[in-house]
Structure formats: structure tokens, C-alpha cells
């Protein structure tokens, strides 16, 4: 037993200073930065290259944006002139994590979150129990969520804990591309969580289907099935980004414009869903400049 104590002392403190201080470059691993258009960006070529349809461009409507909920950070678009800064000051990196382009659907984001949950924020501060549900991930997102409890991120210090049962949960973390076989399971899990409850959708897969959006068994983005409060883009997002998502959900990080709240457009009939899919509409977009 003594040996463990000694070892612990020898190692010193590993835990990140986030959220008191900005995370270091090391903690935001390199590909956590989204692509940014530069002067030489060829939007049309980018649109063709992008495997997930994250680059949206229409010359007639003069529409050009990068949908961060779809981007998997594959860096293919770098050949079309999009930049992937390797170093970036972490403040802007974090902002981009939850960026919105001011799409009208999100204008009232923070207010909604505030209205819905602000009364609870005080009690969440000491004890916030999250349940992770995998609805079809590749396991990398699961790893990253589990990593939140390792000494480098240690979210227990912020009063956030994992729980095993929906009945004890305050929030649901959803990872993975919603599989048809999991739709019902997801709904039932959600129903079993006592209200009020928060839902945090982690990873490109759960936000939009990511790279799996064209596979046969992909049902729909998670927010079409249960109401989602905060999204964390990335493939997979780094633990710091997920932690930030959790802190935003509990009102611990105040932001003015730096997070997205997905609209709760739950489909009643499958027909509507079909239409949605055909239009290829995506409800939140990333920064474009």
C-alpha cells in the first residue's frame, strides 16, 4: 500500500488544469482542429472530395460552409486548399468545437439550455451522473469517453461520475451512428432516465452519421430520435472536448456564441424522416471563415 502512495507522489500531478486554465497543446491532440478555408480554398473541389458531405457549397446560393457535425477530420480537403493548422491558440480551437454559423435554428440556444436547466445547475455542480450508451460506434468514441476518468482528465474532481443505471443518471452520453437495431433501445433507455435529463451527443457519428451515414443499417442522427441538448463534434472528439461539452451542459462554462444546441425536431412519422433525408438537410453548420 505504501508503495502506491510513494508512486503517486513521485509522479506528481498529471491532471489537466482545464477548465480553470486553457488546455495545453498536448491535451488537445493535433487533429482536434477543424479545417478552415483559406484564400486558395477551392470549395467546389472540396465538396467533391469530402467523404462525408461536410463541405457544403452552392455557387448559385453563394453558400459555402463546413458542417462540423459531419466532418471526420480526415484532412482530404487539404488538397483543395483547406487549412489544418497544427498549432492554434487553444481558445479558438475550443470555440470551433462548438461553433455555429448563426443558423436561425440555434439563435436561442443558450437561452433554451438556461431556461430548461439553470435551476438544476447548482445541484449538478456537486454530483452529475452520466450514463454512456453506444448505439453503433467504432469503439474509439467509447474509449475517449472512458478516458475522462483517467488521471489526466479526472472528471470526478469536477463532480461528474459514470453510472451504470439509467435510473441514477442525470445525463445520457450517446456515441456512435444510430443503428436500426438500437433505435428502440435508445428510446427505452432515454425514457428510463428520470427527468429532468440532459442528452449529450458525442462524435460525428451520433451527430450526423459521420462516415457511416451511407451504410445500410444507419437509422438517423440521434437528435431525430431523442432531444439532444449539446453536441460534441469530432471523430473521435478528444476527452477535453467531451469534458467541455459536459461542462457546458451543466452551465459551468459560460459561452456567448460557442456552442451548438441541436433542435429537437423529433420525427413523428417515418415519412417525414424520409423527406428530411432526401433533402439532405442538416440542422447545424460549422464555421465558415
Amino acid at each position: 500500500m505504501k508503495l502506491w502512495v510513494l508512486r503517486g507522489l513521485k509522479k506528481g500531478m498529471l491532471t489537466t488544469k482545464f477548465p480553470k486554465e486553457q488546455p495545453t497543446q498536448d491535451e488537445l491532440s493535433r487533429k482536434s482542429f477543424p479545417p478552415t478555408p483559406s484564400k486558395v480554398s477551392d470549395w467546389e473541389r472540396g465538396r467533391l472530395i469530402c467523404p462525408t458531405g461536410a463541405i457544403q457549397y452552392d455557387s448559385q446560393l453563394a453558400k459555402s460552409e463546413i458542417d462540423l457535425g459531419k466532418c471526420i477530420y480526415c484532412q482530404r480537403c487539404s488538397s483543395a486548399g483547406f487549412e489544418f493548422p497544427e498549432t492554434r491558440d487553444s481558445t479558438s480551437a475550443l470555440k470551433a468545437t462548438f461553433a455555429t454559423n448563426g443558423d436561425s435554428a440555434y439563435e436561442s440556444d443558450e437561452r433554451l439550455l438556461f431556461e430548461k436547466y439553470s435551476k438544476l445547475w447548482k445541484s449538478f455542480k456537486k454530483s452529475f451522473h452520466v450514463l454512456m450508451i453506444d448505439v453503433g460506434s467504432c469503439n474509439a468514441c467509447n474509449f475517449e469517453v472512458l478516458n475522462l476518468s483517467n488521471p489526466y482528465y479526472d472528471f470526478n474532481r469536477l463532480g461528474i461520475f459514470f453510472t451504470n443505471s439509467p435510473k441514477h443518471a442525470d445525463a445520457l452520453i450517446v456515441v456512435g451512428a444510430l443503428n436500426k437495431a438500437m433505435v428502440d433501445v435508445l428510446k427505452r433507455t432515454y425514457d428510463n432516465i428520470p427527468s429532468p435529463k440532459l442528452v449529450i451527443s458525442v462524435g460525428a457519428c451520433s451527430i450526423s452519421g459521420g462516415i457511416f451515414q451511407n451504410t445500410e443499417s444507419f437509422a438517423s442522427p440521434v437528435r431525430k430520435v431523442i432531444p439532444v441538448d449539446v453536441v460534441v463534434p469530432g471523430c473521435p472528439p478528444t476527452p477535453i472536448q467531451i469534458l467541455q461539452g459536459l461542462l457546458i451542459a451543466t452551465g459551468r462554462i459560460k459561452t456567448t456564441e460557442s456552442f451548438v444546441r441541436a433542435p429537437t425536431d423529433i420525427e413523428e412519422t417515418s415519412e417525414q424522416e424520409e423527406e428530411e433525408k432526401n433533402e439532405g438537410s442538416s440542422s447545424f453548420k460549422g464555421v465558415s471563415g
Binding site: P51, I72, C74, D134, V135, G136, S137, C138, N139, A140, C141, F143, G176, A177, N179, A181, M182, V185, I211, F212, N214, T215, E216, S217, F218, P236
Partner: peptide, 30 residues
């Protein structure tokens, strides 16, 4: 429960497009 059907959905793709899906079959064995 989470079969994504990667083998089926990459039919007809260029190998380097398919690579993106294949490496996401199992993220921790990518």
C-alpha cells in the same frame, strides 16, 4: 446490435475512400 455493414457499403468505392470506412471498423484496432 451495431453491425454497420462496412463490407457491403464499400462495394464500388475507390480503395482510398474505402480505407476511411475500413479503419473505422474497429477504432481501437484501426
Amino acid at each position: 446490435f451495431k453491425r454497420r455493414g462496412i463490407e457491403q457499403s464499400i462495394v464500388g468505392m475507390k480503395p482510398d475512400e474505402a480505407l476511411l470506412l475500413v479503419e473505422r471498423s474497429a477504432g481501437n484496432f484501426s
